[in-house]
Design a protein around this nucleic acid. Structure first.
Lengths: 225, 225
DNA sequence: ATTATTTTGTGATATGCATCACAACACCTA
DNA sequence: TAGGTGTTGTGATGCATATCACAAAATAAT
């Protein structure tokens, strides 16, 4: 509604090649929204007729586990959210919550499907992304279950620095409780391990700010538990 | 090579609608193979130019974890295997091993891609399958980490009965060691829990044969840890 | 500012499960 | 039929980490 999608800076190699008609429909059938940190972007159990394109920001995917809410992964822009809803029974199977302030586009499901069908590059792109997610799930599964806390914590810190913030200095985007949930441990263990890492000179903590001082050692810890 | 794909009984709603030309190319560019229980169907690290269609049988997906091989899931026919290879760098990112005797088709990557591009129903089908896999990964992740051994074992047994063998009496398709690996525990714990379940009258064990006697209780255990 | 609420640090304790150890089977091979 | 090789059952022990408990610090609310 607001903008012309054709000139959106978030177009990828595949989406820049859409037809004029597709761009027109897309422009007319999307909704740009801003979410504040902590806002719910997708709510598990709700009926939805939109795909969500996360343009800017960081979000967490979480769902109802048998006992408590479980964060299964952090996702960073740009990415599409809610594809399993779109291609399933139109009921959100997980929740997505903004971890930072976030810009998203809600795209009507039918338009999205239509564009997908008319643009093989785009549908390939989606398939590639889904395949990569699958692989990551597999690897995370193997890691989480075989490593112990220090290893998983080291992984998480390296992940933040290398794949999310692209800097060895960053502010923890989530609370220690959430981090504990994400790496499958307890809040207290997260606190203890961070203290240990700090004491051992691997990281420097000041409040929520963390600097990785010795990534080599962190990688070693990641490998040796 | 062997058969005409058009008359293959494993065609789905989407694949029966392929063009004559596509069927011709498919027939000329696929390889039907049989694998014995224990055979390697896909080998992690190997270069591959094929998608594998699992037509009949049961297989396990496993990959190199940080310390040891990790089974991430069992898959049953019909399904496509190796999609992340096809849509990635053509190097297998995981291994697949036949758990029962198995029939598969090796389909040339280029043909597969071509057919995918020419058939929106088929590519939708693939996207749907990938989305479902993602959801399952999420749920399994939440379950595995929140439940304890008895709960995960109950899940595994119910999964065998309800989603794989469609019968409350079945033969364990994998060894206790493998099962332990799959449910993230030790071989000894698997043995112990099975004994307990048997002692409590929830299941009846004779050799590798298992009968579920009280699925309601198993579901309860699944929920309460 | 002052109170209320959430987040964090750290000790003490409890426990689920891995690991070790070894015996009893089962299964293939010669 | 024996003898190797992998699988399974079950006790004893140890350890990583969850849980409990509470204080300190930070953040939000009034």
């Amino acid at each position: 509604m607001q903008n012309d999608c054709k000139h959106c800076p978030f177009n990828t190699r595949a989406t820049t090649m859409l037809s004029e008609e597709s761009f027109g429909q897309l422009s007319d059938n999307h909704l740009e929204l801003k979410f504040k940190k902590g806002d719910t972007i997708i709510k598990q159990g709700m009926f939805s007729t939109n795909v969500v394109f996360l343009r800017r920001g960081l979000a967490k995917i979480h769902l109802n586990g048998p006992y408590h809410e479980q964060i299964v992964r952090l996702v960073k822009a740009p990415t599409y959210l809610g594809l399993p809803t779109t291609f399933g029974d139109k009921v959100n199977q997980y929740s997505v919550t903004a971890v930072t302030d976030t810009d998203v586009c809600y795209i009507d499901v039918n338009i999205f499907q239509k564009i997908l069908n008319e643009n093989r590059d785009f549908s390939n792109e989606i398939i590639v992304e889904l395949c990569q997610n699958e692989l990551e799930s597999f690897k995370r599964c193997a890691n989480r279950t075989q490593k112990q806390i220090r290893g998983n914590m080291a992984d998480a810190l390296l992940e933040f620095a290398e794949n999310i913030f692209y800097s060895d200095i960053f502010t923890l985007p989530i609370s220690q409780s959430e981090l504990a949930n994400l790496v499958d441990t307890s809040r207290e263990s997260v606190s203890r391990v961070l203290s240990e890492f700090d004491k051992d000179g691997l990281i420097a903590i000041s409040g929520k700010n963390i600097e990785l001082l010795n990534k080599k050692s962190l990688r070693l810890i990641s490998q040796n538990g």
